[in-house]
Simulated assay, not measured.
Amino acid sequence: MAKHKIYTMSFARVYPLYVSKAEKKGRTKSEVDEIIRWLTGYTQEELEVQLEKQTNFETFLAEAPQLNPSRSFIKGVVCGVRVEDIEEPTMQEIRYLDKLMDELAKGKAMEKILRK
């Protein structure tokens, strides 16, 4: 079976969309970055390198220094699918990130988004 198109899409292509979505709702780029760092374990410098390299989503997640163990507490629906029910690991990680960005745009407190 062919891989989903998003796996080969550059993370740097989607990143500005996350920032734009957040800023339209009064949130900040630094909050977007904090969420990405929390989920993946990248430092800010490592995140910026990945963006500069135009790393694809699959590689971006596969090379993540430390996927946060608390990500399993992320529940809910993204694109009509419950994130906790997605069986393909890479797609689930992508949808976790989408869900966190949705929560940010909806005004949820950072402490709740980051499952503290």
Rank of each mutant, 00 (worst) to 15 (best):
V83L: 06
E63I: 03
T43K: 01
P69C: 10
I94Q: 03
E52F: 04
Y15W: 12
E111I: 08
L104G: 01
D102R: 14
E45A: 06
R115V: 07
Q44Y: 04
E93K: 04
F73C: 06
Q66A: 14
R27E: 12
D33K: 03
V14Q: 13
E84W: 04
F57W: 11
E58I: 12
Q92Y: 01
E87S: 01
T43Y: 04
A105H: 00
K116V: 05
R71P: 07
I74L: 14
I74A: 13
K106A: 08
V49Q: 09
Y96P: 00
E52I: 11
L114K: 06
N56G: 08
Y15F: 15
Q92H: 04
T43F: 04
T28V: 07
S10G: 03
T90C: 05
C79M: 03
Y7M: 03
M1L: 08
L114H: 05
G26K: 14
S30R: 14
L100G: 00
E52S: 06
E93S: 07
E93F: 02
T8I: 09
L67D: 00
R95L: 05
L61A: 09
E93P: 00
S72E: 10
L39A: 15
P69R: 09
C79Y: 05
G107N: 05
Y15A: 00
F60R: 07
Q54H: 05
D33Q: 14
E46C: 04
T40Y: 12
K108M: 14
L51R: 07
A64C: 13
A22T: 14
D98M: 11
T90M: 13
I35Q: 06
R115L: 13
N56V: 12
S70R: 15
L39S: 13
V83N: 05
D85C: 00
M101S: 01
I74R: 06
V81A: 07
V78N: 02
E48C: 01
K24A: 08
V14M: 12
M91W: 09
Y18T: 14
A109S: 04
V32D: 11
R13Y: 15
Y7F: 13
V19Q: 11
C79I: 01
P16R: 09
I36Y: 03
L61C: 04
Y18E: 11
L104R: 00
F73A: 08
E103L: 12
F73Q: 09
E111W: 06
F73R: 10
T43D: 07
E23F: 07
Q66Y: 10
S70V: 13
L97R: 01
D102A: 08
M91K: 09
F11A: 00
F57V: 13
